[in-house]
Amino acid sequence: MHIGYARVSTTDQRLDLQLDALKRAGCERIFTDQASGARNDRPGLEGATSHLRAGDTLVVWKLDRLGRTVRQLVELASQLEGRGVHFASLTDGIDTGTAAGRFFFHVMAALAEMERDLIRERTKAGLEAARARGRQGGRPRKLTARQVSHAAKLLADPETTGSDVAQTLGVARSTLYRALRAKSSLSKL
Rank of each mutant, 00 (worst) to 15 (best):
E115K: 13
R135N: 13
E81T: 03
D20F: 00
R29K: 14
K62I: 00
R120G: 13
A35H: 06
R120K: 15
A109I: 11
D92F: 05
S78N: 15
A125P: 04
A77T: 13
T96G: 03
G93W: 00
I119G: 02
R102C: 01
D16P: 04
L127I: 15
G26T: 06
G126A: 10
L63H: 08
Q79Y: 09
L15T: 00
E75F: 02
S36V: 07
A130Y: 05
R29F: 05
E75L: 09
D20Q: 13
T91D: 08
H86G: 11
D64G: 06
Q136H: 12
T96L: 03
L111K: 09
E121I: 01
L66A: 09
I94K: 11
T49N: 14
D64Y: 01
R68Y: 07
F104I: 03
A100I: 02
Q79H: 12
Q34I: 14
R116E: 04
M108W: 09
R122C: 02
R65E: 03
G93V: 03
Q18Y: 01
R131L: 06
A130P: 08
E81G: 02
N40Y: 12
R53T: 14
R116I: 07
L111Q: 14
V60Q: 07
T49D: 13
R65W: 04
A109N: 12
L22I: 14
V59H: 07
S50H: 15
D64W: 03
T49F: 14
G134I: 13
F31Q: 02
V85I: 15
L80T: 03
R120N: 14
T57P: 00
T91N: 09
G37T: 08
G126C: 07
S50D: 15
E28Q: 15
S50P: 08
R116N: 03
L127R: 14
K23S: 10
A77D: 14
R120H: 14
R71L: 12
R120D: 14
E113K: 08
F31A: 08
E121F: 06
G47P: 10
G84H: 02
R14M: 05
R120S: 15
F104G: 06
A21V: 01
I30E: 04
A100Q: 12
G84F: 01
A54C: 01
R53M: 14
A125I: 05
Q18H: 02
F87C: 09
G55H: 03
